[in-house]
Computed example of a mutant assay.
Amino acid sequence: MAFKPKRASIVFYVSDIARTESFYNETLGLDLQRQEGAEPFWLSGALEDGLEIVFFQMEGRRGDTPALVFDVTEGGIDDIVADLAAKGVTIVTPVSEAPGGWSADFLDPDGFGLGLWQAEDKPRSLR
């Protein structure tokens, strides 16, 4: 199975989601929307060119984000992660539950964190 990303989001882990919401909406004039499925709420919005930006409040350290997260639009996240591991890719976080679906994290050859996200209504395996 050859995975070819069609969509991606930039994801930020922040220390104060309300402060982030105020800054991006009021100071920068973006239209971030509150989303449910994580505690506390999370934020998402799109720039005019269609690039989605997402913000979650969680523990982290500087350098953990932003992260580029590829959408698995057709499903099969388990297969994709297995294929990446078979090719020697370092899997940082195996397929795990995420708001609205499933996610996994891995490293590129230089150690940059990348991720996958798949909606919960898609099959985890296509094999």
Rank of each mutant, 00 (worst) to 15 (best):
V92N: 04
T90V: 15
G75V: 02
G88E: 06
V69G: 00
V92Q: 12
F106L: 07
V92W: 01
G101W: 07
A98R: 02
F70T: 00
V81Y: 11
F106V: 10
A82P: 01
D78L: 15
V89I: 15
V72Q: 06
V72E: 02
V89N: 09
D78M: 05
L107S: 09
D79P: 04
G76Y: 12
D71N: 01
A104V: 04
V81C: 03
F106M: 09
V72A: 02
A85D: 11
E74C: 02
I91N: 11
P99V: 04
E97R: 15
V72K: 04
G76M: 10
L107A: 11
F106R: 10
D79V: 08
L107N: 10
S103V: 00
I77G: 12
V72S: 01
A82Y: 02
A104R: 04
I91L: 13
W102Y: 15
I80L: 09
G76P: 04
F70N: 05
G88S: 06
D105N: 11
A98G: 05
F106D: 05
K87A: 15
G100F: 09
A82N: 08
T90P: 08
F70K: 00
V95E: 06
F106I: 10
G75A: 09
V95Y: 08
D83L: 04
I80C: 08
K87R: 15
F106E: 05
I80R: 10
P99H: 07
V72H: 04
D71L: 05
V92A: 13
D105A: 13
P94M: 03
W102D: 06
G100Q: 05
I77R: 08
V92P: 04
A86L: 07
D78Q: 11
S103G: 12
A104Y: 06
V89R: 12
G88P: 07
G101P: 08
D105S: 13
P94Y: 06
L84M: 14
A85C: 03
T93W: 04
D83A: 15
A86P: 00
A82D: 10
T73N: 06
I91W: 12
D83M: 02
F70P: 01
